[in-house]
């Protein structure tokens, strides 16, 4: 997932103010225009051609019934135009509706479990201690690994004859053994566990980084006034950590809605379609491997709008202060 380090985006864009009063410089001269054109062109062409265009095309394709060997002429064929039928089909397919539910399950469970866990651990670890930098390295390891590689490792560990079941037996909890990733009743929970393992370290590091910005004087002052450790955390540190928590929650939610790699790699297709399908895996399965690019594109558009709505609603209600409209308003 490439979006993971995006906190750098919204937060810093609200940073340094643009230097004013540059207008005295030959604005509008031919030379300047050429420079702007030459410098902007590569980024602009790439961005418009490979980010914006495909998303627009997804919307167009979603209105067609397209064969796997797609050609542009198909778009001119009125027989292939099906209007909103792909969307009707998607919302009428239990597997896809369940996929939406699974995405929201992961989203909510992540917020409820990973958030408090990360904050709690970060608060505990936020003090001078031996081996702090080593510890920071270690808890960041799962995050650095590719989702695919982490997923494969867990898949091996969670096999019926794998390390986890053997370890349970070794400590006398043999009856807890499960077919973790192949039992449709528990596969989604297993998946959530793996995701928590993968992303908790990132959340902890992010919270620790946020805690660096909380002035120690406040906690000291409160301690002198007799506040307990817990009162200090509850009434001073956590509220001051608010912006970090809200940005983490935003990243976590967007990640949960886009979830693909981990599910695709760890859960066998048959089990996936029964219990752990996500919007993205369903999209790739139908659009690419079942050879229905039109239907797959409709799924992509639905995924886009769900993500957009979640992002906008969240930004409206939670991120407003932190970003000060960084995304919607731009430079200033």
């Amino acid at each position: 997932m490439t979006t993971v380090l995006n906190p750098a985006g919204p937060a810093t864009s609200a940073g340094p103010a643009p230097a004013p009063g540059r207008s005295h410089r030959r604005s509008g001269s031919v030379r300047q225009r050429i420079e702007i054109a030459v410098l902007m062109t590569p980024a602009l062409v790439l961005f418009l051609g490979f980010v914006i265009l495909p998303v627009v095309l997804a919307a167009v394709y979603s209105l067609y019934n397209l064969p796997p060997a797609f050609r542009w002429e198909h778009l001119a064929d009125p027989e292939r135009f099906v209007g909103l039928a792909n969307y009707e089909r998607a919302f009428g397919t239990p597997e896809f509706v369940r996929a939406i539910g699974n995405n929201f399950f992961i989203l909510i469970a992540s917020l409820l479990v990973q958030g408090p866990l990360a904050i709690g651990i970060a608060l505990l670890l936020n003090r001078p201690m031996r081996g702090r930098s080593v510890l920071r390295l270690l808890i960041f390891v799962p995050y650095v690994l590719a989702e695919v590689i982490a997923g494969l490792s867990w898949k091996l560990l969670l096999q019926p004859q794998g390390g986890v079941n053997a370890a349970l037996e070794a400590i006398g909890l043999g009856e807890w053994r499960q077919n973790w990733l192949a039992d449709p009743d528990i596969a989604l929970w297993t998946l959530f566990f793996i995701l928590t393992w993968k992303y908790l370290g990132f959340a902890i590091i992010l919270m620790l980084a946020g805690l660096q910005g909380v002035p120690e004087e406040l906690a000291e002052a409160a301690a002198i006034d007799g506040a307990s450790w817990w009162q200090i955390q509850r009434h001073i540190t956590i509220p001051l950590l608010g912006p970090t928590i809200r940005i983490w929650a935003f990243l976590s939610m967007i990640g949960a809605l886009q979830l693909f790699d981990m599910v695709w790699v760890t859960v066998a297709p048959t089990v996936r379609s029964m219990s752990t399908e996500t919007m993205a895996t369903y999209m790739v399965q139908q659009g690419q491997f079942a050879g229905q690019p039109g239907y797959g594109s409709a799924i992509a558009v639905i995924l886009f709008f769900i993500s957009l709505i979640v992002a906008l609603v969240y930004q409206r209600f939670a991120l407003r202060r932190d970003l000060a409209g960084a995304i919607t308003r731009g430079v200033r």
Binding site: T2, T3, N6, G9, P10, S13, A43, F47, F50, V51, I52, L53, P54, V55, L57, A58, Y61, F70, I254, Q258, F260, A280, M283, V284, G287, Q288, P293, G296, S297, A300, V301, L303, F304, S307, L308, A311, A326, I327, R329, G330, V331
Partner: peptide, 22 residues
């Protein structure tokens, strides 16, 4: 600038299928 920041809202997942055809 706004155009590029808006790009954050266009994840690869959404564009993937048409991109492959393109």
């Amino acid at each position: 600038y706004t155009l590029f920041t808006a790009g954050l809202m266009f994840p690869l997942t959404v564009a993937a299928l048409p991109l492959t055809l393109l």
